[in-house]
Design a protein around this nucleic acid. Structure first.
Lengths: 136, 136
DNA sequence: ATAGTTGCAAAGTCTTTGCGGAAAT
DNA sequence: ATTTCCGCAAAGACTTTGCAACTAT
């Protein structure tokens, strides 16, 4: 079992504020890919005292701690997801913008193999497919 | 054999200006992943009358025409490469930031397969690996 | 009491755009 | 002659940051 985000913040000597508690909760409950504005909206629904700047700061902090993954789907803003979720990749529907998650062990293994072939230890990876729905 | 960027611009009824000629030349000669500022610098070395705004406009135009691919390596600015170059993916050296290109037919095929399995026609794809050099 | 956090607003970075002048067709 | 394009500077979108007030320890 993994430690909560809050435990990990405390372990680093960082202070437990209501803002961080709330933002952490929002992130842990999210199963999608919210951007900062969306995180701010969700956090504010729980506690109106949370500023956008604090969300930016917290998200940056969590990313540096490896708790959050930052994603960019090409629309200029960063999106986030809990890095403890099982690894998965994304397929983006070019017509609707919908993001479909998928995971394929074969492709994961292949990525490892390729990195090794190039003389690298794989530390992270991101695969994004762009597609259009097959009709019929 | 593929048409030049200039031919394709003309074919769309767009005007051939010195700026576009120069920017097209810079892009065709690039074998790396320049950002807009870098493209501007290279273009300006050939012709000082090219503004940054024009580079932005041209790059956007070329991207919409499918001539250029826009890449994002997570540092906030867009990078570009000629989309006519053989498809390849990128491995980013986490320590140096160096970008290594590679191509693996197996992984390409697998991507197609996955997209189809999800009910999609694959229109584009991007794979980025992050790694650290294996020592010894 | 002390050092870390926050909110606010200002500033930063990258990109887009309105406009009058310039150039391509 | 028209219509498109360019340079410039202003504006936009997203993100970061300086500072004084606040708060967890």
């Amino acid at each position: 079992m993994t430690k909560t985000i809050l435990d990990r913040l405390e372990a680093q000597g960082l202070r437990m504020t209501d803002q961080r508690r709330t933002i952490a909760q929002v992130i842990e409950q999210a199963s999608d890919h919210p951007d900062v504005e969306e995180l701010h909206a969700r956090a504010n629904a729980l506690d109106a005292r949370i500023s956008l700047a604090t969300v930016y700061r917290t998200v940056k902090l969590l990313e540096e701690m490896g708790i959050l993954d930052r994603l960019e789907f090409g629309d200029g803003r960063a999106r986030f997801e809990d890095s403890q979720r099982d690894h998965h990749d994304h397929l983006i529907d070019m017509d609707t913008g919908e993001v479909i998650e998928f995971c394929d062990p074969e492709i994961e293994a292949l990525q490892e193999k390729i990195a090794r072939r190039l003389g690298y230890h794989l530390q992270g990876h991101r695969l994004e497919l762009l597609g259009r729905k097959i009709k019929g």
